[in-house]
Nucleic acid binder design. Structure first.
Lengths: 210, 210
DNA sequence: AGGATACGAAACGGTGTGGTATCGTAATTC
DNA sequence: GAATTACGATACCACACCGTTTCGTATCCT
């Protein structure tokens, strides 16, 4: 059991010509690209083969289960590494983190769009998304806030830090996906100054409440 | 020109047997249902016909342009009416509005998921979403804030009210769509108390900034 | 060297889908 | 009553896709 899509395809025997590892990465990268461009349903295995410069049997030799496993493997390969952000101030860190996310949103947003309905149907894919992709951004945000607390910029860590961490990615996804609204510097500034920082500073308000 | 998908199908001549209007609504409702269940690509015209209790030519007689126009017409029919919310307090209104949205999210989230990638490819569909669906929620939020200002609960309308209005729907969509996280009362309370209200009260901070 | 395996190219079968056409029947106008 | 149009049922065509097979060649282990 538990033979779900790891990044390693079906293992090859130890005799005869070994598999070309460059084929693996070419296939998975082509899969991600086409997934983002066309979505799950409109992505065809033939197109993946063509773009990867690989023949179709080469793909099915590695993922005999077919399209589903191929897509899961490709998505699992997408864990983006967490960038190290440290500008010295809370506001600077938040702005930098958001701009970093916006810079990389083009592909990721389209990817999410192409996979959105599949997430409801494939628990395996949902697990990959939930356990591999989402925690990275949350960890980055937590780190920024933690350092701000250590510097004394904030009184304490909010108890619902996860909710706050989701705000940015959530807004960015929605704006770039559903409605085609701009993700410019003005948006980042407004969001940081009028939403994130007020929410963060609202923890244990020392002044009068209400 | 400008003959884009209105809710009225192709007009019938005035002689002979008139079209059955009940067929129109049956077709559009079946389209919405299947769209939410399967997404754009996996939804077939045959399935729509079957669920609507209608034959396929009956569909193509109304939307000769095919699937695209049919989907656009079905989505355009989905303007939800704005509920009238007035609990007397800002916090009560916000909680009520969010819970109303969460209650209706099941179908809408799946619908959005099924259409997400199509929104990038069909400007017509994107327009419907941007001009018919989104403004409703924003107007509701603006109304709530406006009344809070009139009651004196808030100092002034925030300048970036649209950004704030998008926060809730955005979070709800993301949580129910990408990651399967709970949308319970605890979530609503945390969001309202620790994000929305602090952001709203941060307008024109009279105390010390920074 | 020899056996075993991977590779590319190409073709194939089966299935599902979009969209059209045919035919007989029902409903409405002139 | 006659012409006209909508409706259901069914069949149909063309196409695209998935997954498999075949074949000749290239590459590696023993």
């Amino acid at each position: 059991m538990m033979a779900t899509a790891t990044s390693a395809p079906v293992e090859a025997p130890h005799r005869g010509r070994p598999r070309d590892p460059s084929c693996d990465v070419a296939i998975l990268e082509a899969t991600i690209e086409l997934l983002a461009e066309l979505g799950y349903d409109r992505m065809t295995v033939d197109a993946v083969a063509a773009r990867a410069g690989v023949s179709k049997p080469t793909i099915y030799r590695r993922w005999p289960e077919g399209k589903d496993e191929l897509v899961s493997a490709a998505v699992a390969r997408c864990k983006e590494e967490m960038p190290s952000i440290d500008t010295g101030s809370l506001r600077g860190d938040l702005v930098a983190a958001l701009e970093h996310m916006i810079a990389g949103i083009r592909e990721n947003a389209q990817l999410a769009a192409g996979l959105a309905q599949r997430l409801r149907e494939s628990p395996q894919l949902a697990r990959v998304f939930r356990e591999e992709i989402a925690p990275v951004k949350r960890a980055l945000f937590k780190d920024i806030v933690r350092r701000a607390v250590e510097r004394g910029e904030l009184a304490a860590m909010p108890s619902d830090i996860t909710l706050l961490a989701d705000l940015g990615p959530s807004l960015i996804h929605t704006r770039s996906l559903l409605m085609g609204e701009p993700l410019d510097r003005r948006f980042v500034n407004q969001f940081v100054d009028h939403v994130l920082i007020p929410a963060l500073k609202a923890v244990e308000p020392k002044g009068a409440s209400r």
